[in-house]
Amino acid sequence: MEIAGTLARLGNRILSMIAAIMILLMLLYGGYSLWDTVMVYRGAFLSSDLLQFKPAEDAVESPTLLELQAINPDVQGWLTIDDTHIDYPVVQGENDMEYVNKDVYGEFALSGAIFLSSLDNLEFDEGYHLLYGHHMDNGGMFGDIVEFPQESYFDSHTSGVFYLPDAAYDITLFACLEVDAYDPVVYDCDSGADRKKLLDYIKKNAVQYREIGVTAADSVMGFSTCAEAETNGRVVVFGRLTKRS
């Protein structure tokens, strides 16, 4: 009986140790999950320190962007899409992977930054300019882009502004496409690409389209992010740039 009692107590201790280890593992996993969530959404929305560099709404020139460029020369402008969460500085890296996991300060951030194609020639009075941003489930970065395939959302969101240090461009949104990540027309950012071909392709394949009289002579900007359901699926919204005077 004494041996049986000893074995029972030993068994209880082992079970208690196993339970304690399981609880510790669950706490560690919970802590990691919380840390991972914080890291993913860190920088996904406009922070107070970045807010000081945001251009004035009716600005034609934005000297605050020069201050931000002094911190990171890769900063090229600031994008605002009206009535959305899209309100961020825009950078351009040496390649299209540089700012996938770096914020506007060049520091590690899983939410990345909004960035121009590395092929962009930065001549915004003409041509085609493509911006990329992560699809964040909380609407951060380009998370709101995935709402544009809905007719009601597309119809109620029609405008934005792209600011440069020495200029500003009003954006008139006119189309939304759902494409593959390797679409040869949408993702052809070469400055010599056929713009009429692009506009014809957009009109033919758009899931939402608004006739605004855009032509190959206009400057067009695209905003690309990952679709919700497909690994290689992308949602791209297009707008015409009109320089403010």
Rank of each mutant, 00 (worst) to 15 (best):
I3V: 10
A4N: 04
A4I: 11
L7F: 02
L10F: 04
L10E: 05
N12E: 08
M17S: 11
M17D: 04
I18Y: 08
A19I: 11
M22I: 14
M22V: 14
L25K: 03
Y29V: 15
Y32A: 10
T37R: 15
V38R: 10
Y41W: 00
R42P: 03
R42G: 11
R42A: 10
G43F: 05
L46I: 13
L46W: 00
S47G: 14
S47H: 08
S48A: 15
D49R: 09
L50S: 11
L51K: 15
L51P: 09
Q52T: 14
P55L: 02
P55D: 02
A56W: 03
D58N: 14
D58P: 04
V60K: 07
S62I: 13
S62E: 04
P63D: 06
I71W: 01
P73H: 12
Q76D: 07
G77T: 14
G77L: 10
W78Q: 09
H85R: 13
H85V: 12
I86F: 01
D87A: 09
V91M: 03
Q92E: 04
G93S: 03
E94H: 13
E94V: 15
E94A: 14
D96V: 12
E98Q: 15
D103M: 09
D103A: 08
G106C: 13
G106R: 12
L110S: 10
S111N: 09
I114V: 15
S117V: 02
S117W: 01
L119P: 00
N121V: 09
N121C: 06
L122F: 06
E123R: 14
E126M: 05
G127A: 08
G127L: 08
G127M: 08
L130D: 02
L131K: 08
L131W: 04
Y132E: 01
Y132A: 03
Y132N: 01
G139T: 04
G139A: 06
G140E: 07
G140P: 05
M141K: 11
M141H: 08
F142Y: 06
D144H: 10
I145K: 03
I145V: 15
F148P: 05
Q150H: 13
Q150M: 14
S152P: 02
Y153I: 14
Y153Q: 07
D155A: 06
S156Y: 01
H157G: 04
L164C: 02
D166S: 06
A167P: 07
A168Y: 00
A168C: 00
L173S: 01
A175Q: 07
C176D: 07
V179C: 02
D180S: 07
A181C: 07
D183Y: 11
D183S: 12
D183C: 10
P184D: 03
P184G: 02
D188W: 07
C189I: 11
G192E: 13
R195Q: 09
K196E: 03
K197S: 10
L198G: 08
L199D: 01
D200A: 12
Y201V: 06
K204Q: 14
V207N: 03
Q208E: 12
Q208F: 03
Q208G: 08
E211N: 11
E211R: 07
A216T: 07
V220R: 00
M221N: 04
F223Q: 04
S224G: 06
A227K: 12
E228W: 07
A229Y: 11
R234Q: 00
V235I: 15
V236Q: 00
F238I: 09
F238E: 05
G239N: 05
G239C: 01
T242D: 08
R244C: 09
